[in-house]
Design a protein around this nucleic acid. Structure first.
Lengths: 205, 205
DNA sequence: CGTATTATGTAGTGATCGATACAGATATAG
DNA sequence: CTATATCTGTATCGATCACTACATAATACG
C-alpha cells in the first residue's frame, strides 16, 4: 500500500456532488468556492486529486458515464432496433425530467457548457455525446446486417435522429418540461421509426 | 429632438456584434472586455445604453428575435401544417449549421446559457424558446379547427415535438454537425408527421 | 522508533470579473 | 452666447475568480 496520509473523502461521492453543481450552474457558472463546499473538501484537496477545474470537470464526465452505463447497456441489448429506440428515448425522458430529485432537470452533457470561454469544455461534452451516438449507430449497423433493419435504412441517420430528439428533450426538461410532456414527444418521435405508423392521418378527422 | 451629445454607435450593429460573442462564449463566458471590444464601444457607453450585462443580453435576445422574424413569418404562413413543420425544421437545420459564417454554429437560444450562475438567464432563454413553441402550437390549433389536422391530433404535442427536434439539431450543430447530416434528421423527423409514411418498413430488406 | 510520503486546513496569491467616478466632448434649448 | 443634458474615454473600483505556499497531520516503510 502506498505511503502518506490517506484521502479523507470518497472520490465518487465528491464527484457526484460536483456533478450537481456543474449541472445546475454550468461549467463557468460553478465557482471553486461552490464546488469545494458542495464536495466537503478544501481547495488544496481538490487540486491534489483532480489537477484543476477542467480536470475535475472531466472526472465528473467520466463519473457521469459510469452512472449511466447500466441504462445504456439495457438499451443496447434490447430485442430489436425499435425497442432500442423506445427504451433510449423513454429513458432519457424519465431521466431528464426526473421529479424525484436524484438529478437536476435536463442533462449534464447538454447544459453544462455548449458555449464556453474555454473551447475544451464544449469539445469534451460533444465527445461524450458522440460516444452515445456511436454506440447506437453500431447497434443499428449490426441490426441491418442481421436483417432486423431494411437495407435502405441509414443506421447513422437513425442514431443521429434519436440523439437529436433526446438532446432536444433535455433542453425542454432544463426549462421545466414534465415527464408527461416528454412522453408525448417520445411517442411522436417513434412514429417516424421504420415499420411504425405515423401518429394520425392528416386531413381526415 | 432630445438634448445632449448623440450616441456614437449604431445600437443594432453593436447588438449584432455582442450576439456573436454571447453565441460563441455563452453568457458567463463572454467578458465585458470581449463584449466592449467586439462592439467597438467603451464600458460606460455600454452601461449607459443597456444598464448592465444582463440588460445587454436581454437586448441581444430581442434583436435575435427581430432577425428571425421574417423566417418565422414564412413558416407560420405556410399552406398546411405539414409545410409548417418542414419549413421550420429545414430552416433551423440550415440556420444552425450555417456554413457561410453569418452566425456561429448552433442556436443562441440553446447554447448561450442553459445553466448559469444567474438563473435569470436560462429563464429568459426558455421564455424566448417557449414563444416559438407557442406560435407553432397556435398555428396547429387553427389548422385543427379548420380541419387541416385530424381531431385526434394534439397541437401542443406537435409543436413540442418540432421544438425538441429543432433544439436537438442545434445541439448537434454546435458540435459541428453539417447541413447534410441535419437534413437527414429533418427527413426522419417529418416521417412521424400525421399523414406521412415512416421512413421504411422494418424487417423486409 | 525515525524517515519518507501524501493529504489537509489556513490564509492568501495575482488576475480578471462586472461595474463606475470623473472630466471632457458634443449636442439641444432658450 | 449660456445653461442643460447626454455621451465618451481614461483610469480604476471592490469583489470574486481559479489557484497555491506553507505548516501540520496522518499514514507506510524499514
Amino acid at each position: 500500500m502506498k505511503a502518506g496520509r490517506p484521502r479523507s473523502f470518497c472520490t465518487d461521492t465528491a464527484l457526484d456532488r460536483a456533478m450537481t453543481v456543474f449541472w445546475r450552474k454550468g461549467y463557468e457558472g460553478a465557482s471553486l468556492a461552490e464546488l469545494t463546499e458542495a464536495m466537503g473538501i478544501s481547495p488544496p484537496s481538490l487540486y491534489a486529486a483532480f489537477g484543476n477545474k477542467e480536470g475535475l470537470f472531466l472526472a465528473v464526465l467520466a463519473r457521469y458515464d459510469a452512472r449511466r452505463q447500466a441504462l445504456m447497456d439495457r438499451v443496447l441489448n434490447a430485442a430489436d432496433p425499435g425497442a432500442v429506440a423506445r427504451l433510449y428515448l423513454e429513458g432519457v425522458a424519465e431521466f431528464a425530467a426526473d421529479t424525484e430529485g436524484r438529478n437536476p432537470p435536463g442533462c449534464l452533457l447538454v447544459q453544462s457548457g455548449l458555449s464556453c470561454s474555454d473551447a475544451d469544455i464544449p469539445l469534451a461534452l460533444a465527445q461524450h455525446r458522440a460516444e452515445k451516438e456511436r454506440a447506437l449507430r453500431q447497434r443499428f449497423e449490426r441490426d441491418q446486417e442481421a436483417g432486423a433493419l431494411p437495407q435502405g435504412a441509414d443506421p447513422a441517420a437513425l442514431a443521429r435522429y434519436l440523439m437529436a430528439v433526446a438532446n432536444g428533450m433535455c433542453v425542454q426538461a432544463s426549462a421545466g418540461a414534465t415527464t408527461k410532456e416528454l412522453a408525448e414527444v417520445v411517442e411522436m418521435a417513434l412514429a417516424a421509426w421504420p415499420g411504425n405508423k405515423p401518429q394520425l392521418r392528416e386531413g381526415s378527422p
